[in-house]
Design a protein around this nucleic acid. Sequence first.
DNA 1: ATAGGCCTGACG
DNA 2: CGTCAGGCCTAT
Length: 273
Amino acid sequence: MPELPEVEIVRRQLDEELGGACIAAVEVLLPRLVKYPNPTSYRRGLRGRTVRGVGRRGKYLLIHLDDDRILVIHLGMTGSLRFASPGVERPRHTHLVFRLEDGRELLFVDPRTFGETALLREGDFRPLPGLHRLGPEPLDERFTLGELRRALRGRCRIKAALLDQSRVAGIGNIYADEALHRAGIHPLRHLDELSPREVTRLHRAIREVLREAIERGGSSVSDYVDTRGEKGNFQDHHRVYRRAGKPCPRCGEMICRKRLAGRSTYFCPRCQR
DNA sequence: ATAGGCCTGACG
DNA sequence: CGTCAGGCCTAT
């Protein structure tokens, strides 16, 4: 479900509401979501810890604790984090419960169970290969044009490259399509045939679309909600994503939808070459 | 580069 | 019933 902008919204809320909070106990209702260490060590390692702050790498939430460990949470496709009060009925598909010392509970809810969590040592991400191999942060000031060029070496299609988290972190199906449309690049183009001007446009497009999405609270296409249950509204500003058959906002041509590597891909056949 | 698998739910 | 879904891993 959530890509970089949505995870960033959640990160900000968690940082605000969780900073300084102490974890009294953890309930693991669906053990296979705990990737590292084993669920028992995970629970024991978290009990009594205080949250120092909440960061993000790509689509991973990094909850920094007071003992040089990080509680990592990936929301997968349909995961969400919700604050709740004990006693109130928990939503369906609640798989993790973090009970805080102040009485609040933070629930991890995930119908499709593609999410994951781990308790890692600061500075050793190897137990979570996806996090360990993550590419550069596109909104970081160090993500220069040169960094994008470096990320786009090799030979594959540009859409596949943008979805590859080890090239650039945090871009998923929505923002790959939206960035390519803004840059005027056809999703099936190969990396080695992109001109320097096109890579420049893409660099700008990626950063622009991610920033705008964050400003608008993210995209709520099916079920994304933040920790307060609020939807974003960037879906109303998508130019191509899920707009097959509708006119391109730039040129009026009909938006096409094609299947690429099993993913729906939306583009304007006129603006994107 | 693609298909399939992990899961559940919404929609036609 | 079938199709679709914002992620990501594995195998071919």
